[in-house]
Design a protein around this nucleic acid. Structure first.
Lengths: 123, 123
DNA sequence: CAGTATAGGGACAATATTTTCACTATTGTA
DNA sequence: TACAATAGTGAAAATATTGTCCCTATACTG
């Protein structure tokens, strides 16, 4: 395993949340699992920009922190499903807020760009 | 400047929020500025684990995204102050939620550790 | 004069994260 | 037989982020 050398800073709640949610795809994964995508292949198809490897790693981390629960069906070809735990569900408001804020910011941002192109400047 | 080679993924709002808030200290900085710490030296003293360099970089990024506003007082020795913009203030609920969730998770986590030490296991 | 405080940047080193690619193994399908 | 789908890992490379150290400049203090 990879051993970290820079000590983590857990002085404030924000750092903790960032430790658990900070990965590039973790909030997206929580969101997707909540929306019904449980199998790794589904998640991978829904996030084509994410490498399979990272998704796998981040799922493992989320599981290690008790955010999701892994169910291995003993069949072949393999079938695995991930579900949110209570801890994971308690993160949903945060994930939703991230999604909403980002969407609003994006549309605001696009509006600004349009206005600049048309030569209009807001006061 | 540093040029990124992996294209950003802005397909969902979450990625956008992460792009703006994802830095190691950005949410902490927003929180601190909101709580009245406006000068870089104050912020640095309040986050001794963060290197001066990174704080400076992340402040610059927050400014570039319009989350904070920089006020340079033309005096010597230099005096600079950062303030939240409207965009920055719109992030406060998110920052608060991160702080609260992390704090709760941490105390839950500590409780569990204690219980394990005492030999008690919750069902 | 020497040191401190102020805000910040450049150069570079150290560390962390992500990507790529090749592999494991089994079953079903063309 | 050859290949896809399934879930996942190892090794190594590529990229990103953060840390360390030294430098700029000015005014004040001792």
């Amino acid at each position: 395993m990879y051993e970290k050398k820079i000590p983590k800073d857990f002085s404030c709640g924000i750092s903790i949340t960032l430790e658990i949610m900070g990965g590039k795809w973790k909030p997206c994964l929580i969101d997707s699992i909540n929306k019904g995508m449980h199998r790794p292949s589904e998640l991978a198809k829904h996030h084509p920009n994410a490498s399979k490897r990272v998704l796998s790693l981040q799922l493992k981390e989320l599981e290690a922190y008790g955010v999701i629960r892994k169910v291995i069906h003993p069949v072949l070809p393999p079938k695995v499903e991930y579900f949110l735990t209570e801890v994971g569900e308690s993160l949903l408001p945060l994930v939703d807020m991230m999604e909403n804020w980002g969407s609003e910011f994006m549309s605001e941002f696009n509006n600004r760009q349009e206005n600049i192109h048309v030569g209009v400047t807001k006061m």
